[in-house]
């Protein structure tokens, strides 16, 4: 009983120390690269740090910190670890189907449409949106600003080449999302990648933007930010929600991930949720 208690106490102390180390590490990363992970979900960041420590056989976070400061390119690889880029084309197809059904008819009335895809990662959802707009005949008057804090994933996104292994799932998503044509009309495949037609890339602007540190850069009719906020602490989520609110035009739309909600935010009352549970909100 005593020993167990002692162990627990030791564990507690160890945890406190590690928290301190992680604070230092995140501060260092912020000062060195400008990427601010200080307000990210700590458990997630901690897991990823440990993951990197396991891979490189580093014992302590301080050891990692040393490498970050003194070793060239190490910071870059660590930053890559931090950015989780899980995404799919037409992820949660019902979201896109609802968007097509509920939002597109309203966008159709606008002379121009500005869409901000915040945290676009490797661009799968941006391409999905572009295809959707093309099919709805809105592509020519729409501009999609696709941003992510990670320049490397943006580079991937610009190429528009996605692993062929994933295309079966994407095809299914496309169909479930209410696709108007054959999905294969948008890509050509070789044995490794499906290359999306360059015409889809027209009107998409990929740019580096950090939701934590950067300000708004335009007023948008639609803001899509899916499965990004889950990595943030509640305070940071709130901050970003305010940024979105400031960046939305009146009657503009905000699309979130299926596990995210506006319910507990201070901006809740400034939005109304449209069409059930798809996390599409309209500014009122």
């Amino acid at each position: 009983m005593d020993k167990q208690g002692e162990n627990m106490k030791l564990e507690e102390v160890y945890k406190q120390h590690e928290d301190l180390e992680i604070d230092f590490l995140l501060e260092a990363i912020y000062r060195l690269s400008g990427f601010d992970f200080r307000q990210y979900n700590r458990s997630s960041i901690s897991r990823r740090i440990h993951n990197r420590m396991n891979i490189n056989g580093i014992e302590t976070v301080t050891g990692l910190l040393e490498k970050v400061i003194h070793e060239e390119h190490f910071l870059e690889s660590l930053l890559n670890d931090f950015s989780i880029n899980v995404t799919e084309m037409f992820r949660n197809p019902s979201f896109f189907k609802t968007f097509r059904k509920e939002v597109v008819p309203i966008l159709r009335k606008y002379p121009e449409i500005r869409i901000w895809h915040a945290g676009c990662a490797t661009g799968e959802e941006v391409y999905s949106m572009a295809i959707l707009l093309e099919e709805e005949g809105l592509k020519d008057k729409a501009v999609i600003y696709a941003t992510d804090m990670n320049e490397q994933v943006l580079e991937k996104a610009r190429k528009g080449a996605f692993p062929i292994q994933k295309m079966q799932a994407y095809t299914k998503n496309y169909m479930l999302a209410g696709g108007n044509y054959a999905f294969s009309e948008y890509y050509k495949a070789d044995d490794q990648y499906a290359y999306f037609h360059p015409s889809i890339l027209e009107n998409i602007i990929f740019a580096q933007h950090n939701l934590v540190t950067d300000q708004s850069f335009n007023e948008f009719h639609v803001i899509i930010c899916r499965n990004v906020l889950i990595y943030f602490t509640a305070d940071l989520q709130e901050q970003v929600q305010h940024l979105f609110y400031e960046s939305l035009s009146p009657q503009g739309f905000l699309g979130l991930g299926d596990k995210e909600t506006l319910r507990f935010s201070q901006v809740t009352e400034k939005y109304q949720e449209i069409a059930g549970n798809e996390r599409i909100y309209q500014r009122v």
Partner: peptide, 19 residues
């Protein structure tokens, strides 16, 4: 809130696992 945090955490973990 707790359940939301847990859902988010699960989603994060699942995405991390996927990564």
């Amino acid at each position: 809130n707790e359940s939301r945090a847990m859902t988010e955490e699960l989603q994060v973990q699942s995405e991390e696992l996927q990564t």
